[in-house]
Design a binder for these strands. Structure first.
Lengths: 224, 224
DNA sequence: TAGATTGTTAATCGATTAACAATC
DNA sequence: TAGATTGTTAATCGATTAACAATC
């Protein structure tokens, strides 16, 4: 009556029990771990201890172990963590093992830059459509994708199984557009507009408020 | 022996005592307060209580009062906060009452977008120079400013009293460039490269890691 | 003055760090 | 096995919320 029984953590690992809620602070640190582990992997390092990673990343070893243990523990006593394994596990946690279809709404400076800039595709984020309300831009191609009128969004999203909308329009239209996207059953919005979107709980919103960031920087200068 | 004496907080307000250390969490919330207060001001609202602001912003009234009181208290019992006054005080705290000279290092997609996009100027961030290592871009004008070779950075920064460098180059060159900028006595770096810069304490670094942000979003989808 | 609402102290909650037994 | 290092519990620290006296 012992070995035959699964511990709660095992059941959880099997995916039967799912979401013990992970704090936002932990999630926010995962991409950074992922970045460092990728670098380690690329430089041929096979294993690393929480202590060594701690020195490298300038966070406590304790925090590293706590963070990873939120997801079940990926290390081995006396050995540390296998870099490649941990790297892949974090990718899975972050959902990077899947592919996502996205559209860009707003083909102005920022929308164009994002379309061209990031290697979206390499990480499994496929740009399927680009939209703007400015007729001058219609047909203009970015990475081989022609800009369409915003009027097409609703049909396009439902016909092309779009997961993510990148919102790069001025704040004036952003709230209305977000509502439209919600109606189209979008799963997530990457919001670059300087407003808070008010969408249902189920929709994932990730804000990139560049002006907020610049203000934090100027606070830093002013209070040096 | 009472009225004649200044309370500690008064001395602090006079700027004699300066920096009781404000937590990063508080600073991160200031731009959002500033945005909401700006909107309230624009719609002609003169005063607001922490309770009403609480409903609007979906944070607790307690947190609002605590946050503001980090900087000395801007309200009045029985009245609330004067919107315009509070707005201006937050601007001062954020250092938005001053003007900053900046350069953009990296005139690729993102650098160009930032040069054109944000109304930097309106908020007192003056783009003085744009640099790239790609000769094809030399002389190309963005907002009336010609792109220069990166070799010019050192001289340009010292001759033009530059406060901020916007780093929009690929991660490969970013660390070295940051070191150069530090040598030039830059005060702050707005870092869009996907690396952690390792600079002295005195330099303000504000990171915008877009790929990290996108990973948080995909985590949100994957763990919905 | 009475009512409203701040400024501020105290209580709670959550996140980080420390410590150590488990175990590879 | 002995040494190393995790996984995990306990202690600490900091941030958020609640409560209320001060005061406009």
């Amino acid at each position: 009556m012992n070995g035959a029984w699964l511990k709660v953590v095992d059941i959880w690992r099997l995916g039967i029990v799912d979401d013990k809620n992970i704090s936002q602070a932990v999630v926010a640190r995962l991409p950074r771990y992922y970045r460092y582990l990728g670098d380690l992997k690329d430089s041929g390092i096979e294993r690393i201890s929480s202590q060594d990673l701690s020195k490298l990343m300038k966070v406590t070893a304790s925090q590293i172990r706590q963070d990873f243990n939120n997801f079940g523990g990926f290390g081995q006593q006396g050995y540390g963590y296998n870099v490649e394994y941990l790297y892949n596990e974090i990718a899975k946690i972050l959902g990077l093992d899947k592919s996502y279809n996205l559209i860009i709404v707003g083909a102005g400076n920022l929308g164009q830059a994002l379309a061209n800039y990031m290697n979206f595709k390499r990480r499994g984020f496929i740009v399927k459509g680009i939209f703007d309300k400015n007729p001058v831009l219609y047909g203009k191609e970015l990475r081989g994708i022609a800009v369409q009128p915003v009027e097409n969004i609703e049909r396009f999203v439902s016909e092309n199984d779009i997961d993510i909308a990148v919102l790069t329009i001025p704040k004036e239209g952003a709230v209305k557009t977000a509502e439209l996207l919600v109606k189209c059953d979008i799963r997530a919005i990457w919001n670059f507009a300087h407003v808070d979107l008010n969408v249902p709980e189920r929709i994932v919103v990730e804000n990139v408020h560049l002006s907020d960031s610049l203000m934090k920087l100027s606070y830093g200068i002013a209070n040096q």
